[in-house]
């Protein structure tokens, strides 16, 4: 295949996307701090966290979708590369999920919980997001318990398909249905009536940028893992 290196990744496409993502995110970060936004009581400048905290969850959702797609393909074809891709995407789903939780906790500490010294107060949306991250953490616990490669790939893929089913409920439906401090019960956890429309100008590019960043980091992991696999195969006892 043209432009495809030994690990089966289109490196030319990777490089183009990587460079675009670097430039794109630089502009997003600049815009996030420089664009003037209305100052709202309690939120004040922390409203700008919309550009950073919320895309973590968009990116996690994208990562779980990519992971589930490759798990599905693994069950269809049994190709080991699918397992590598599913695992790498799931790992990044956990990374972005943890970043989303930690950034959300810091944001809440100085807005909802200002003056109370609370970092975590079991807001149901926070709790369910934490559960979501744990569901993906269990994917790796499950993997570490199976020694046989083919068996591990198949069992992990089946688990992964169950895990992805929980994503729409815990990250999409619940934040829109449940009353809590976290905005969203009126229909949209990212934008509420106090969110100035101008913020969408940075917010959507930020989501695209972070998903692009996910794709870059994910592809790096896939390339590394595929080279590893080739080396292992080359040295495997006949």
């Amino acid at each position: 295949m043209a432009n495809t290196n030994t690990s089966g990744v289109n490196v030319r496409r990777y490089r183009i996307i990587r460079n675009v993502v670097i430039g794109w995110m630089t502009v997003v970060v600049l815009g996030a701090f420089l664009l003037d936004i209305p100052r709202i009581n309690i939120l004040e400048h922390t409203a700008r966290n919309l550009y950073f905290h919320v895309p973590m969850w968009f990116t996690m959702m994208a990562a779980t979708l990519v992971s589930a797609y490759h798990s599905l393909r693994l069950l269809q074809t049994g190709a080991p590369v699918r397992d590598v891709r599913a695992k790498s995407a799931a790992l990044l789903a956990v990374v972005f999920g943890v970043l989303g939780l930690v950034t959300g906790s810091v944001w809440a500490r100085f807005t909802w919980y200002q003056g109370t010294d609370l970092w975590w107060n079991f807001d149901p949306k926070q709790s369910m997001a934490a559960v979501q991250v744990l569901i993906y953490g269990a994917y790796f616990v499950l993997r570490s318990g199976i020694d046989d490669d083919r068996k591990r790939a198949r069992i992990a893929a089946v688990y992964n398909l169950f895990a992805v089913v929980t994503v729409p409920f815990l990250l999409y439906v619940l934040p829109r249905q449940m009353e809590s401090l976290h905005p969203g019960a009126e229909g949209n956890p990212a934008f509420s009536d106090i969110t100035h429309p101008i913020m969408r100008l940075i917010f959507y590019p930020a989501c695209i940028g972070f998903i692009g960043l996910f794709w870059v980091l994910y592809t790096q992991r896939v390339r590394t893992a595929l080279v590893q696999r080739r080396l292992d195969d080359a040295h495997a006892p006949l």
């Binding site: 939120l43 004040e44 922390t46």
Partner: peptide, 30 residues
């Protein structure tokens, strides 16, 4: 809370930055 809470945004950005850098370093290790 100083500067209209701008440092909260700084903290959030730094957490994400550090998190992603740690991930990149682990890929590097591999």
């Amino acid at each position: 809370l100083a500067q209209d809470k701008l440092y909260v945004v700084l903290a959030v950005v730094l957490i994400i930055w550090i998190g992603l850098i740690v991930f990149v370093l682990r890929t590097d290790q591999r």
